[in-house]
Design a binder for these strands. Structure first.
Lengths: 225, 225
DNA sequence: TGGCTATTTATACACTTGCACAACAAGGCC
DNA sequence: GGCCTTGTTGTGCAAGTGTATAAATAGCCA
């Protein structure tokens, strides 16, 4: 029942002003707002009203663009995974660089900001925690992960080929799995406790570990002084 | 308003029977039920009523043992971290075994069930996703992590000492960080996609990677045939 | 300029949530 | 055995949830 002593009944309506945005833009904004909320407040805190507030719209609008909350979250996670793998792989597109240099650059990129990032880690962990119960999330992750590992495997193959070394597919796969684990593990440590490491320290550790894994002599530019 | 056509109004009360349990036992049960719910339903699905149902009590009882939901979740996470590190370190208490053997056994234990486990991973990820926003969770994690890494560092020191190799503290720390990352990364891969690896495969990959990191010649029993 | 339509707001609703509290009974103590 | 403590249940409540839907208005096209 409405309060009889309404403090501002001057001229009743006063509806909120708004602008119409393009569909793509709105969907993008809503997904971004969703990721913000999940990162800061967790899945429980990411309510439709909070997300809408963050996106600068009202809650009802969300249902105009997404069938329901679940679909919004799934699309947000898909967008996140896509951005993460894209960002990671971007470090590999170096023209005229030796395989060794590309591998080192790849590791360095993945173990420094902006890929080392507490917000992204929070999102990654939050969504992944639900993966075992939500096949859609599990698939989105699996695809991103395998894409990443295949990139690793391709660079490793190039590096070893440049060194005239021949490995069978199984050994190559094992190297890729191990290197992927090294990068993942260091990425987590960096995201969770970045202040425990000096700048570039994680990348240096990662490069040395990967070189050891592949049995490579250290490149001069990365050797200890 | 109560249904006028109540189907079972025979003799009104019919209160639920219950047993009094010891305080420690009840708290333990409630924490276990909480972990179950979080693992299967996520933090959002872990409601007081669901948790109570799982524990075989009614929701009101929880407030008898915990000030509120948040404290229950924190205690549950603390218990989880404690159990994880305890389990991991248990693999190190091998009397009369060489450092190399103990290191290998440590890696093997951490990369096989029951430490490789989808439920534990789900819990780990779910809680860690909130760590950046919840200092209590962050501290619980940090303590567990550093404890684990110190164990790694101690074994590594023993292994290298047995090989007559001397490293300064910085190099030792770097090795421990890298080895920790290898184990963490492979653990995640195993938990998320255990069926992609044959039994023992992850442990084999991990041991070889760690041996490479430390510059050790493979032990005979782990060499490829 | 004046409609038309689709985007956007606002309200309503059924349901769930965490928490408070009164009633109850299980089991030890005398 | 009867009582008394307190572990346990059941109910109630205000706040918040996702969803449905009606009402409004922004901006395009004629």
């Amino acid at each position: 029942m409405p309060d009889a002593a309404d403090p501002a009944p001057m001229n009743a309506p006063s509806r909120r002003k708004f602008r119409r945005e393009g569909e793509e833009r709105r969907r993008q904004d809503l997904i971004e707002a969703t990721l913000d909320c999940v990162a800061e407040l967790g899945l429980q805190g990411a309510t439709l009203r909070t997300i809408a507030l963050r996106a600068g719209v009202t809650a009802g609008l969300i249902r105009h663009y997404f069938p329901g909350k679940e679909e919004l979250l799934q699309e947000a996670y898909t967008a996140l995974v896509g951005r993460m793998t894209e960002q990671a792989k971007a470090a590999l597109v170096m023209e005229d660089a030796s395989p060794r240099e590309r591998l080192a650059a790849f590791i360095t990129a993945n173990l420094n900001p902006p890929i080392i990032d507490a917000r992204v880690f929070s999102l990654w962990a939050t969504f992944l925690g639900r993966a075992s119960a939500d096949p859609t999330l599990a698939r989105a992750h699996r695809e991103g992960y395998l894409g990443f590992r295949n990139e690793v495997e391709a660079v490793v193959a190039e590096v070893l080929a440049a060194e005239q070394r021949k490995l069978d597919a199984g050994q190559l796969r094992h190297h890729a799995i191990a290197i992927n684990a090294i990068i993942d593990g260091l990425w987590i440590e960096g995201c969770l406790a970045g202040e425990m490491f000096s700048p570039g320290e994680l990348a240096a550790i990662g490069i040395k570990a990967v070189e050891a894994e592949l049995g490579l002599a250290p490149l001069e530019q990365f050797q200890e002084k």
